[in-house]
């Protein structure tokens, strides 16, 4: 049911953990629905480069794998580049997900956006237009307005 890449990222997830002095933290999802993703980032305030990123996830195998892959995709990237990361990119990097698990990739995209939203907030800056996820995704993802690609 899962690709080898998904199983690899599920069983050996990259970047698990917390960052004590994170300057960007985002959490999305809801225990009711069975998925919560929390992403910590250490962003260089001069260069806007994501120097470190860690995650913690409560969720199924796909939720853990998408969190792991999403953190890999944004690590070392600039904030602007990270905001370009779509759930589709996460799915492709994992060699696909079963259709019922696509929402996990959406959650991973939202978790990254939510952390970056938090970064702007902490700096007292206005987040770029279109960045709407401020941990807003507290309702079950099947009611979510984000498009699943």
């Amino acid at each position: 049911m899962y690709s080898e890449k998904v199983m690899d990222h599920f069983s050996n997830p990259r970047n698990v953990g917390e960052i004590e002095d994170a300057n960007a933290v985002g959490e999305v999802g809801n225990p009711q629905c069975g998925d919560i993703m929390k992403i910590y980032m250490k962003i260089n305030e001069e260069t806007n480069i994501i120097e470190d990123v860690k995650f913690k996830t409560f969720g199924c195998g796909a939720a853990i794998a998408t969190s792991s892959m999403a953190t890999e995709l944004v690590k070392g990237k600039s904030v602007d580049e990270a905001l370009q990361m779509t759930n589709k990119a996460v799915v492709e990097a994992l060699d696909g997900l079963p259709p019922v698990k696509l929402h996990c990739s959406v959650l991973a995209e939202e978790a990254v956006q939510s952390a970056i939203f938090n970064y702007y907030e902490r700096k007292g800056l206005t987040p770029p237009a279109g960045l709407k996820c401020s941990g807003c995704c507290s309702s079950c993802h099947h009611h979510h307005d984000h498009e699943e690609e």
Binding site: V16, E18, E27, I36, M37, F55, K56, T57
Partner: peptide, 8 residues
């Protein structure tokens, strides 16, 4: 649990 935000 070590990777669960709920446990944290």
């Amino acid at each position: 649990r070590a990777m669960s935000p709920l446990y944290e």
